[in-house]
């Protein structure tokens, strides 16, 4: 309602200005037209910041491959953008997307230097296996998962390196077999691959290095058939050593990728 009134007013003003221009050729070209309409249209914005009235994702939880719809409405925004590759969008609208993993979408409405931001997260789950229903988790399978988990090995690395050595490839092979059996035994468990570094590099670089180690370990496990949607990585850098002495034996124990179970 209000918007249409403003538009009508703006058009009216534009016409008035244009008419004036015709009758008074000395007036600066076009500028007064723009000024008149801009001032009228923007007056509400001078007293109000850009606002996101709503930003939703429906449904909030989907299986991979299914569509979600983002819907948004904003007020007083000059530009509205949504991240995760969506880009610039209209002030209000909707968009259908197919997220492949759990994703947080952020919308930013801007007016000059002012902005408003909101986020919404879509949880993406793995598609259910088409075959038979999962076997119920029994006492036996829980014990089996515990037993198999205790056999998982750390994957070790050289100083400043994130390549797999021969001994770490053997550890990856062992872990891949164990993980496949664990995942078969209990459909609810997932694993985090923690990357770690020894104390010697800088804390900042070690964070990057340990992130590489976790990713390299995960890629190797996935290549061996471990489902990637049940593995997540995290870098601890040099912040969580298993050993605190300053010698090579201890540093080697800390330069590792470690598998840790999460529910």
């Amino acid at each position: 309602m209000r918007r249409t009134q403003l538009v009508v007013l703006a058009i009216a003003l534009a016409f008035t200005a244009a008419c004036k221009k015709k009758t008074a050729p000395v007036a600066p070209q076009a500028a007064p037209v723009k000024e008149a309409s801009t001032v009228q249209l923007n007056r509400p914005a001078l007293t109000a910041t850009p606002r996101i009235d709503s930003f939703t994702a429906e449904p909030a939880r989907v299986e991979r491959g299914q569509a979600i719809t983002l819907r948004w409405a904003t007020t007083n925004a000059e530009t509205v953008t949504i991240d995760q590759g969506v880009g610039t969008v209209t002030a209000s609208g909707n968009r259908q997307l197919f997220p492949t993993a759990t994703t947080t979408y952020a919308i930013i409405a801007r007016h000059g230097t002012l902005s408003d931001t909101r986020t919404v997260t879509v949880e993406v789950t793995a598609p259910r296996p088409v075959e038979t229903a999962k076997p119920p988790v029994t006492q036996d399978s829980a014990a089996l998962v515990r037993e198999l988990t205790s056999q998982l090995q750390d994957i070790y690395f050289d100083y400043d390196m994130s390549d797999l050595r021969d001994d770490s490839r053997r550890a990856v092979n062992t872990d891949a077999d164990l993980l496949k059996r664990i995942f078969a035994a209990d459909a609810r468990v997932n694993f985090v691959i923690e990357g770690h570094a020894d104390e010697r590099g800088s804390a900042e670089y070690n964070l990057g290095l340990a992130d590489r180690r976790a990713l390299v370990a995960r890629d190797a496990l996935v290549q061996l058939g471990v489902p990637s949607n049940r593995l997540r990585t995290i870098s601890f850098g040099e912040e969580a050593p298993v050993c605190r002495e300053s010698n090579e034996a201890c540093w080697q124990r800390n330069r590792r990728a470690h598998l840790s179970q999460v529910q």
Partner: peptide, 13 residues
């Protein structure tokens, strides 16, 4: 203050 973090494993410095 508002800072919208990207979805990533590590962000630093």
């Amino acid at each position: 203050m508002t800072f919208v973090n990207p979805v990533t494993s590590t962000i630093a410095t």
